[in-house]
C-alpha cells in the first residue's frame, strides 16, 4: 500500500518535471538554453518515472535498473553531442 503510494508520488513528480522542462521548447531561446531544461525533464523526470515503475513491479528489477542506467547515460551523451553540434553551427555562420 505504501509502495503503491510512493510509486504514484514518483510518477507524478516525474510528470511534473516533464511538463516543466518541455515547456521552454516552444520558446524562442537558444538551443543550448533549451537543452538545460530538457536535461531536467528527459533525464531527471524520466528517471523519477522509472523509479515509480520499479516500485510497482519490483520482480523485474534487473532489466529496469539496466534501462535506468542506460537512460541516464544516453541522454547525457546526446545532450553533450547536441551542445557540441549546435555550437559549431553558431561559430560557422
Amino acid at each position: 500500500m505504501i509502495l503503491q503510494w510512493l510509486s504514484n508520488a514518483c510518477i507524478s513528480f516525474g510528470l511534473f518535471l516533464w511538463l516543466w522542462g518541455t515547456w521552454p521548447l516552444v520558446g524562442r531561446r537558444s538551443p543550448l538554453y533549451k537543452l538545460h531544461f530538457l536535461s531536467v525533464s528527459d533525464t531527471l523526470g524520466s528517471m523519477a518515472i522509472m523509479i515509480g515503475v520499479l516500485l510497482r513491479i519490483p520482480r523485474e528489477w534487473p532489466l529496469l535498473v539496466l534501462a535506468l542506467i542506460s537512460l541516464a547515460l544516453w541522454n547525457t551523451i546526446l545532450g553533450y553531442v547536441l551542445a557540441y553540434c549546435s555550437q559549431g553551427e553558431d561559430s560557422d555562420g
Binding site: 531544461f37 547515460l73 553533450y80 551542445a83 557540441y84 555550437q87
Partner: peptide
C-alpha cells in the same frame, strides 16, 4: 568527468 558535468542540469560541457 564530462558525464558528471553534463548530467547536472545547470551545466553542460560544450567542448
Amino acid at each position: 568527468d564530462i558525464f558528471t558535468i553534463t548530467f547536472t542540469p545547470k551545466t553542460i560541457v560544450l567542448h
